[in-house]
């Protein structure tokens, strides 16, 4: 594939990439700590993955194989748009196969298949500041991070437990990284939080509009906040995937009619397809339907 006329490889100029790489090195050196960076205006709107795109552009090389997912799916329109952007500006090979990708840019999910040391996962982050809903001033939250003053977040969790019986955060569930920095894992479902802990792959986070980067190096401790008597727990729809029968994957709930009909299917489309190719079936598989 040829790259786009008049633009540098992967769109950004080399000076900008160098600036981002320097910020990324700093981010890797202080896991979970937000690094301000000179986020550029991208040809895609803020809030649509500009941070992730800049990080991907800075780490991408001509030999890389890129996978882009949104909501776990390769075929959601914004994932298609971002994958095309890099196919157009960098001419890199793209894939939907998690195991074949060297760089995975994601919005809202971590693939079900465990990632390897030779892979990088880049998260799109709308709001990098985990304390933002509790304290709107960034001058103040920076001070709180500097002092590791996270009592406010524990109070929030405690208040949830007293009101609802458990923590009522179901996505973007705050984590403590390397025992030091409170971090927003981006709006992945809490179901995905345990995958971040001691992950073999490098995890990079880009927030373009908020102009912050952060990172989790491989094999780093990532602990979801909880209390001894109210341990962290994840939720998923209590069903099996209608297509591949998986009972351990995160499921999307699809409305099938106006009579309350629901179908549950894997949110990770590659995971589901790989399982179906291996012969796994679910209650809605065409074969099963034919048998009925």
């Amino acid at each position: 594939m040829s790259t786009m006329e008049g633009y540098n490889f992967a769109y950004l100029d080399e000076q900008t990439k160098r600036m981002i790489r320097r910020a990324l090195l700093k981010a890797v050196a202080i896991p979970g700590h937000q690094i301000p960076f000179g986020s550029r205006e991208m040809p895609l709107p803020y809030g649509w993955g500009t941070g992730g795109i800049q990080v991907t552009a800075a780490v991408l090389g001509p030999q890389d194989v890129l996978k882009v997912i949104d909501q776990g799916a390769d075929d959601t329109t914004n994932a298609v748009s971002i994958r095309r952007f890099f196919a157009r500006t960098a001419g890199v090979a793209t894939t939907t196969d998690t195991s074949a990708a060297s760089v995975i840019q994601t919005r809202h999910r971590i693939p079900e298949k465990p990632l390897r040391e030779d892979q990088i996962i880049v998260y799109q982050v709308p709001q990098p500041e985990p304390l933002s809903r509790l304290e709107p001033s960034r001058a103040e939250t920076r001070r709180m991070h500097a002092l590791a003053e996270y009592g406010l977040m524990h109070v929030k969790l405690y208040e949830d437990i007293t009101r609802f019986g458990h923590v009522a955060i179901s996505y973007d569930y705050p984590v403590m990284v390397n025992g030091r920095h409170l971090m927003a894992p981006s709006p992945i479902p809490a179901f995905d939080n345990p995958k971040m802990h001691q992950m073999a792959a490098l995890q990079l986070f880009g927030a373009g509009r908020e102009k912050r980067l952060y990172a989790i190096p491989p094999y780093t401790s990532v602990v979801s906040l909880d209390f001894d008597d109210h341990p962290f727990r994840t939720t998923r729809a209590p069903h099996a995937c209608g297509l591949c029968g998986a009972t351990d994957s995160y499921l999307d709930e699809v409305v099938t009619d106006d009579q309350g009909g629901r179908l549950y299917v894997c949110s990770d489309t590659d995971h589901c397809e790989t399982r179906r190719e291996a012969g796994h079936t679910g209650s809605e598989s065409p074969l099963q339907e034919a048998a009925q």
């Binding site: 909501q71 973007d172 998923r236």
Partner: peptide
Amino acid sequence: NIEGTGFVEHLKLPHYVDFQSELET
């Protein structure tokens, strides 16, 4: 307004994974 319009309008991107976790909760 470039930052604002992007972030306000990003709400039309799919959020069904997060919505699913809210449904379960």
